[in-house]
Amino acid sequence: MISNRRKLYVWTVRILMVLATALTGLLTLFLVGYVLLRGIPNITWELLSTSPSYLADRVGILPDILNTIYIIIATLVIVLPLGVGAAVYLTEYASNRRLVGIIEYAAEALSGIPSIIYGLVGMLLFSNNMGTSLMAGALTLVIMNLPVIMRNTQESLKTVPQAYREGAFGLGAGKWRVIRTVVMPGCVDGVVTGCILSVGRILGESAALLFTAGFAHVANGLWEGLHSAGATLTVALYVYAKEQGEFEVAFAIAAILLALSLLINLSATMVTKKYQRRNQ
């Protein structure tokens, strides 16, 4: 026989848990719904395809879209070889297990640092030398995303069966050939996951870029753009909302970013699922 107090306790806890779950769900729904409802009506073709102009009294976010694409490209082009190379070295070549452990730990810790600190460091290291520019921003993002790419690649390298390596070595293949032909193809999904997560982080990043890449809204070509200051969508969102009071534009950008990050989450989940299935 359970005492009444005990019953009451169990029921209270239950109700609290249901409430907490409901609250979480509702908050998410509300946030997403609110942003989409306020944002989507403001997304027009003109907004997406023009640059802002005081003369025409018009706001366009084309430069910000371009800047976002440029900074993603520049960051990935630099961080991919570095991150994948480091991962391959650490898992396939490095023989000092302790050092590898320390580096893995450092990478883990690095991803927990608030991004504004990266911004500060990036400003001193890059912007002060090469000027506030998308390139300086991209380099800062490289430091931020290096651990993401490296860890994801490493984890998937570890899932490549040792038997594949043995089979290839047993045929007289050298180390580099084994890595290139048998190990690397097996870690493609890890690299892809890392890339998707990185793109997500780059899309969401504001603090580090405010410091390093600036907030100009001029549409440029890739090369020109990388060497001038520019706002990404997220930074532009901040600028329009906080400094210019353009809330329609801000919500339009917010809706776009939201949709993109949902898409990114979805694809990351899909890739992860796919390679978990393969490894069973």
Binding site: P161, A163, E166, A168, G170, L171, G186
Partner: peptide
């Protein structure tokens, strides 16, 4: 001096 292992280990190709 080639080798055949206990568990078949064809490459995933």
């Amino acid at each position: 001096v080639g080798m055949v292992f206990q568990k078949p280990n064809p490459f995933p190709m």
